[in-house]
Design a protein around this nucleic acid. Structure first.
Lengths: 236, 236
DNA sequence: CAGTGGTCTAGACCACCGA
DNA sequence: CGGTGGTCTAGACCACTGG
């Protein structure tokens, strides 16, 4: 009795999922129409519609108006990669997060940086460099530029108490973000601050966040390869 | 006239999204109740319900039965990382994908491997090692173990014509997958086959796929850091 | 208790597809 | 053309929350 009274639309979903994951219905095969399923389960078509709509959103089936519903070609495994505030992430592991502040400054934007932030060359930008530690061990080197228009009070923060991410999310509502992850070797300075050898590979994430009309911030986050990994999973 | 007749539920979603991304409604603020919005837009409550349900699924609002709907704390930026068949990925860039086959063998599982695949130590497993090339340049070293129960005919494939991923998806419907990405240095053999120096950092993805009751496959995919990166983006 | 969201119904009209 | 999915309605009952 593990499913006392699953909602009807969940029962329909489970029915379809079962046939798909058992291999009985193969990619490309048609799924019974909404009206057929509605009769079969003795529920309203709207209920079946919700079930199929959610399965489509999950990528398990594809739907074409006028044509029908089919089992999706599962060639793209897609999973959510979640990027979180590092303080929360460490705290959730039951560990202690501390921050070492290396630089808090106002600078003039270089041509490249101005481009990234949507500013003019020479415009003022905020620049911080921090080391994040988990139980005293460095796990991230954070080199960040912030658009003053998005977070005017940024430089006045006490970064040992608040992470840049936390403040930026609070004061510049996030509308868009992009990132890329690659492998690299640390610079001399990064290696020194992270306490690793220059030959130790690292994960580098470049992240750019947009808030409304402004690019809020661009950051380069370097993680020692032996102390960090990105993980995720996918469930049908 | 860019939105001739957006569906009603989309209009409600747009209304809410607008207030959130403009910063007018801040994280934690209450969103008008379903009945209020239904009156305001002169639509049925079901329509508003769908709008709010989808916004909740997108992570923009949180809903608690009996309490209400609130603007979500946007502390987790979450985006879809899509894992795709490398052949498709290369083909989509308009490039040529080729494969170099280094090993196709049947082996006895070591204790560790048996554990990963859900088998007993000494059970037979299939093992392949391939190099994937994009326009003749090595971009991935694929070291894969396959559970014979999930893909009995695996060893008979011509891996210069079909990728393991492609065959596995076709013959063992995917129900679950997990992965982790980390930075590493290549082994001597990996470096040699990829044509890189042993000091060049790489991205390594460990991937484990499950099909129904079986673990179908575990693979280690090594990418030269200078030739590959994972990228994604998030849109509010 | 009144208000909220969670679910469901039995209809309906429409746009679209394929034969 | 008939069948499909896309959307919508005006009700309904329920479980849950908060004061």
């Amino acid at each position: 009795m593990e499913k006392p009274d699953l909602p009807a639309y969940e029962q329909v979903k489970a029915f379809i999922k079962g046939h798909i994951s058992s291999g009985e219905w193969r990619p490309g095969d048609p799924v019974p129409s909404e009206s057929v399923l509605a009769q079969q389960f003795a529920v309203a078509r709207m209920t079946v519609n919700r079930a199929l709509r959610e399965l489509a959103a999950e990528g398990l089936v594809t739907r074409v108006q006028g044509s029908g519903t089919r089992v999706a070609e599962l060639h793209r495994i897609s999973s959510r990669l979640t990027i979180r505030d590092i303080h929360e992430e460490v705290a959730e592991r039951g560990h202690v997060h501390t921050t070492r502040v290396l630089l808090v400054a106002q600078e003039k934007a270089s041509a490249d940086l101005a481009q990234s932030l949507g500013l003019q060359r020479g415009d003022k930008v905020f620049h911080t460099i921090l080391i994040h530690l988990e139980n005293g061990v460095p796990i991230q080197y954070e080199d960040r530029y912030v658009n003053p228009a998005a977070a005017p009070g940024y430089l006045d923060l006490d970064f040992t108490q608040t992470t840049p991410t936390h403040h930026l999310l609070a004061c510049a509502p996030l509308t868009e973000a992009s990132y890329s992850i690659e492998a690299c070797l640390p610079t001399a300075e990064e290696a020194r601050q992270l306490g690793i050898k220059r030959t130790e590979p690292c994960l580098a994430m470049m992240r750019r966040t947009v808030s409304g009309a402004h690019v809020a911030s661009v950051a380069r986050l370097v993680y020692p390869g032996t102390r960090y990994s990105f993980a995720g999973q996918f469930q049908a």
